[in-house]
Amino acid sequence: MTSGPDDRHDDAGVPDRTGDGRGADDERGAPDMEGSDIELLRIWRSNHLGPAIECRIEAALMSDPRGREALGGTVPAQRLERNRLAIMGLATAPRRGRMERLLVRLGVSDSAARLATATPALRAAWLISTVLALLFALATASSSTASGLERVVVYLTIAPLVPLAGVALAFGSAVDPVHETTVATPIDRTRLLLIRTMTILITSIAILMIGAVLLAAPAVAAVAWLLPALVVTAGSIALSPRLGPQRAATVVAAAWILIVLLLGGLSGDSAAAFQPALQVVWLVLATLAAVLVDRQRRHSRYFEA
């Protein structure tokens, strides 16, 4: 990887930036320089500045031919050029988007914020899962044939699958135009999948909460799908290294529906899967799946779709 603008001391080998043996007070390198530039050079040579200020001073000095000449004798040209590019890169880079700025302010790392907001596939996956969530919420709420309990059960069964669909869509060649390019990079794919998953989960959950309100569901029912959503999503991620994201999501979704039907059939209560006792089970399963994902990540960062 390339070096940053703050590596000037490493490159020079010693922190003394004069390099060629000239002392800090020696101004011979700049016989025709303006007073302000000489002052800049003197400050730059004082060796007590942080890398950021040093780079800015170097850039300012390099904007003038005499400044470049003065610096050229003391700093390797390659490093100066790299620092100039670093500053130009910062100066010409577009401003971060609102969401990216917000995430960075909340403490999310720069790269994670970029991946969460700029991933091309994420837009399609987010859009699809959002539309699905909205349509589903509206359809369930407006259904005239089902009873109140049936509508809530259907809602609770399907709701966890909405973020799951979004996650599956967010990491596949079908919706990611740069899938092959992504695969050829060294990025930790588990981290990438988790970042995409979190983005999808947060947006889907918010929308599904609105759906629950539309449904006029009891307060408990409005959140009873949250743990199952975590279970199916984490389970899908855990299975993804073996099955691939789409197949893993399909298997987990089928298993989830089967479990709800089985529990309902066996107990005679169609909402059995969402009772408090089962919520504990979902919590345990979600934790186990999260531990499994974490173990996979520790043992191998080479998750490949």
């Binding site: 390339t2 670093a86 130009m88 890169g89 910062l90 720069d110 790269s111 060294p186």
Partner: peptide, 16 residues
């Protein structure tokens, strides 16, 4: 970012 070029100033310089 996918190529894990960090920190940000270095990445932006490389992009430019």
């Amino acid at each position: 970012v996918l190529k894990e070029i960090e920190p940000r100033p270095t990445r932006l310089a490389e992009v430019a």
